[in-house]
Design a protein around this nucleic acid. Structure first.
Length: 509
RNA sequence: GAGUCGUUAGCUCAGUCGGUAGAGCAUCUGACUUUUAAUCAGAGGGUCGACGGUUCAAGCCCGUCACGACUCACCA
């Protein structure tokens, strides 16, 4: 234990000796930083200092400027900073010692009077200081904040205390999700909750996490998408449903991927994918209002206008624009793979024309998109749950949303023909056997639901974390996740605990 | 999975040619009744990520490992 921890423990004991509980109790506040600002910031200094209205505030002390028989400190509550001014001649000798001995990081409650200092700063002049909670560990540097990225992720509370921009980003994350809810609710969508534990993982191409249920003695999959349960609800007549929930994909992690992330999926009966484009623009615009009045935002130095109508372009047209290759022309799988080879793309054995088109888009188009764009018309081979285009069955009525080279959403006119759906699942199983372990499995229960009749439906999925990144100008997905997935920290006591727990479980089994 | 970089006081960071560890903030003591990265004077504080090697001597050179960041690969 270092000197600072020792000193703080000594102070803790001193408080107890004086009969003060270092871990306090209920404290009723009259004001927050924000309400003080709203009420008094415009008031004239002299008038305010004649009135000195009473208030009662509380917060964590993050800065302290002592000055003999008087001191200033900054307390922070959830709405911001409040400066306090403590005078020995007002609060008395004993009470002044409480303030004097308080460390940065301690929680204090202040009864006081609202005033302005010579520099015009709104300040609470204390009439009494109530000690509310002791911090035994010193906080990071008040000026530089916490910089160690590992500590920022592992000890997010320290990041939240010392880096106010980060704090505000998480507040905005919540507000963005609320704005999306409000928008969808206003369009008469019904928010629902569906199971996280699935018998068959479906609705996306991804490797799932597997878990085990003891009482039923079955393995279950953590969901990789929300899609199939929600579409069962469309069969059930709910017409407009959405879910905002965590999905889990067992894959690598980087600046844009975390193994668990938050997805929004919406389904609306009688919509087609054009309607869903309008809906998606509406959702993104509603979300952007949290951070921008006019829809203009800056992401990593690039200005974007989310209020402008998004560009809408067919995947084949975009590939033609970027590479000159025309995939509208009918061709065999072998011809397509040959073109791929000529462009430095190595096709997998199970690939068909559609996979090659998708690979061309990934390789030559995706990163070039800057302005918000709907890319539509994905090949049927890579879109097992989307309706075929009525005029050209090689492609589907599907689109994805791209902004600055990254994907933000995926949507389509839902496939509602059970026989076609069965056929698509079978194709997926064939792909699985040919080596694609992310291809869909046949979900008989879902097919049965569809056979009862599903209305034409437009569905949409949006990655909420990425949208929050975009709107809050965060470079990495970890910056918008309070607790991103990380390897366990090497702490001997934790390791021993986990091992003991595992051994106990193994004995039981 | 591969490559590059990082890990030094509670925090933010220096550390030269290999010669036995430094600053600012924080902490402690003293001064100070409108400060705001308060100021001034003094003091204490280190398993240099871990382990091993080379050397008379390692924070520094070499190797292994742990954790993290970035790039690539994988992946929507």
């Amino acid at each position: 234990m270092n000197d600072q921890l020792l000193v703080r423990r000594e102070k803790l004991n001193e408080l107890r000796e004086k009969g003060i509980d270092p871990y306090g109790a209920r404290f009723e506040r009259q004001d927050l930083a924000k309400t003080l600002d709203e009420k008094y910031s415009q008031e004239d200094k002299d008038e305010l200092n004649d009135d000195m209205p009473k208030t009662r505030i509380a917060g964590r002390m993050l800065a302290k400027r002592g000055k003999g028989k008087v001191g200033f400190a900054d307390l922070y509550d959830r709405t911001g900073k409040i400066q306090i001014y403590v005078r020995k001649d007002i609060v008395g000798e004993d009470n002044y010692q409480i303030f004097k001995k308080a460390d940065i990081g301690d929680f204090l409650g202040i009864d006081g009077e609202v005033m302005k200092t010579d520099t015009g700063e709104l300040t609470i002049r204390a009439t009494h200081v109530t000690f509310l909670s002791k911090a035994l560990r010193p906080l990071p540097d008040k000026y530089h904040g916490l910089k160690d990225v590992e500590a920022i992720y592992r000890q997010r509370y320290l990041d939240l205390i010392t880096n106010r921009e980060s704090y505000q980003r998480f507040v905005n994350r919540t507000k963005i999700i609320q704005a999306i809810r409000d928008y969808l609710n206003s369009q008469d969508f019904l928010e629902v909750e569906t199971p996280v534990l699935h018998n068959i993982p479906g609705g996306a191409e991804a490797r799932p996490f597997i878990t085990h249920h003891n009482a039923l003695d079955i393995n279950l999959y953590m969901r990789i998408a929300l899609e199939l349960p929600l579409k069962r609800l469309i069969v059930g007549g709910m017409e407009r449903v959405y879910e905002i929930g965590r999905v889990f994909r067992n894959e690598g992690l980087d600046t844009k991927h975390n193994p668990e992330f938050t997805e929004l999926e919406t389904y609306a009966s009688y919509y087609d994918f054009h309607d869903v484009m309008d809906e998606a623009e509406g959702i993104i615009r509603a979300a952007s209002k949290v951070v921008s009045d006019d829809g203009k935002i800056t992401y990593q130095g690039t200005e974007l206008d989310l209020n402008k109508p998004f560009r809408r372009i067919h995947m084949c047209d975009l590939i033609k624009e970027k590479t000159g290759v025309d995939f509208w022309k009918p061709m065999t799988d072998e011809e397509a793979k040959k073109i791929a080879e000529e462009h430095g793309i190595h096709p997998e054995p199970f690939w068909k024309v559609g996979h090659v088109i998708n690979a061309f888009f990934d390789e030559f188009c995706e990163k070039t998109i800057v302005e918000p764009t709907f890319v539509y018309g994905h090949p049927v081979e890579i879109s097992p749950l989307a309706k075929k285009n009525a005029d050209d069955p090689r492609f589907t009525d599907r689109f994805e949303i791209f902004i600055m080279g990254a994907e933000y959403g995926n949507a389509f006119s839902e496939l509602n023909d059970p026989d076609d759906q069965r056929h698509r699942f079978e194709e997926q199983m064939a792909e699985r056997e040919a080596g694609n372990d992310e291809a869909d499995m046949i979900d008989e229960d879902y097919l049965r639901a569809m056979e009862y009749g599903m209305p034409p439906t437009g569905g949409l999925g949006i990655g909420i974390d990425r949208l929050v990144m975009l709107l809050t100008d965060a470079p990495a997905i970890r910056d918008v996740l309070l607790f991103p997935t990380m390897r366990p920290e090497a702490v001997p006591s934790i390791e021993a605990e986990v091992q003991a727990d595992m051994e106990k479980k193994n004995k039981k089994d």
